[in-house]
Computed example of a mutant assay.
Amino acid sequence: MDAESKQSHVHAVFESIAPKYDMMNDVLSFRRHKAWRKFTMRKMNVQPGQSSLDLCCGTCDWTIALARESRGGRTVGLDFSRNMLDIGQAKVDKLDLGGTIELIQGNAMSLPFPDNTFDFVTIGFGLRNVPDYERVIREMRRVVKPGGKVVCLELSKPTWQPFKALYYFYFEKLLPLLGKWLVKRYEQYRWLPESLASFPDLQALAEMFRTTGLRNVRAYPLTGGVAALHIGTKGNDGA
């Protein structure tokens, strides 16, 4: 699938699954995605007043967590799916965070922000869906401030047997069927294992972070390697 086709396909997938996205995340990850996000927030150590940009923000759970930790710092969520953003905006409004969180429809590969704007730039379960992984990481690095952090929380590839075999059986065979049975979306949930097939593993993604110029890159496997957290820092000199 070429870059343009992938972008169109992914957009259609997420526009379609938006109404049931949160429920299916809980079911398909056995609610582990919440624990992974909490672990990530501890590692980030967001301070009051710090600013964050959350890419592929979806229905805004991570965006909201960032806003709460920053206690009034600027928080922006960006996603290309209008349907996902509408659900996220409803959550933001319900929590009365509209004055703190700004949601923007946009493209992660071409961010509408100046260089050196945010203390943190995050992407959660979205990098594997973009046409060009390295381009997005370079854009994240561009808009983060010197000394700021680029953070990616994403599905990954376990290596330990027999867990690896069990995981791939679930992910490739059972997960699309759950999508079909629970929300009548077989083809959309078949995309999830397909999107991971060509995605870099833990070490390869860490090396991609380094290739883009990020420093002090840390990679953490989560739940046996089912997911991974990557954090890189932009040099204080901006290089």
Rank of each mutant, 00 (worst) to 15 (best):
4 E>C: 00
13 V>L: 04
23 M>Y: 09
29 S>F: 09
30 F>M: 12
32 R>G: 00
32 R>I: 11
33 H>G: 01
34 K>G: 02
36 W>Q: 07
43 K>S: 09
49 G>P: 14
60 C>P: 00
65 A>R: 12
71 R>I: 08
75 T>Q: 06
80 F>T: 02
86 D>H: 08
86 D>K: 10
87 I>W: 01
89 Q>H: 07
92 V>R: 08
94 K>F: 09
98 G>S: 10
101 I>H: 06
106 G>K: 05
106 G>C: 03
107 N>F: 05
107 N>V: 02
109 M>L: 15
113 F>M: 01
113 F>A: 00
126 G>A: 04
132 D>M: 07
133 Y>A: 06
138 R>P: 00
142 R>Y: 11
142 R>I: 11
145 K>V: 14
146 P>Y: 13
149 K>L: 15
152 C>P: 01
152 C>M: 10
153 L>K: 04
155 L>C: 10
158 P>Q: 11
161 Q>H: 15
164 K>L: 11
164 K>F: 11
165 A>K: 15
166 L>C: 14
169 F>C: 14
173 K>T: 15
177 L>N: 06
179 G>C: 10
182 L>N: 05
182 L>R: 12
186 Y>W: 13
188 Q>C: 04
195 S>C: 10
205 L>D: 08
210 R>Y: 03
211 T>R: 15
213 G>K: 13
217 V>A: 08
218 R>L: 09
219 A>W: 05
223 T>V: 08
224 G>C: 10
224 G>L: 10
232 G>S: 12
233 T>G: 02
233 T>W: 08
235 G>F: 11
236 N>S: 12
238 G>P: 09
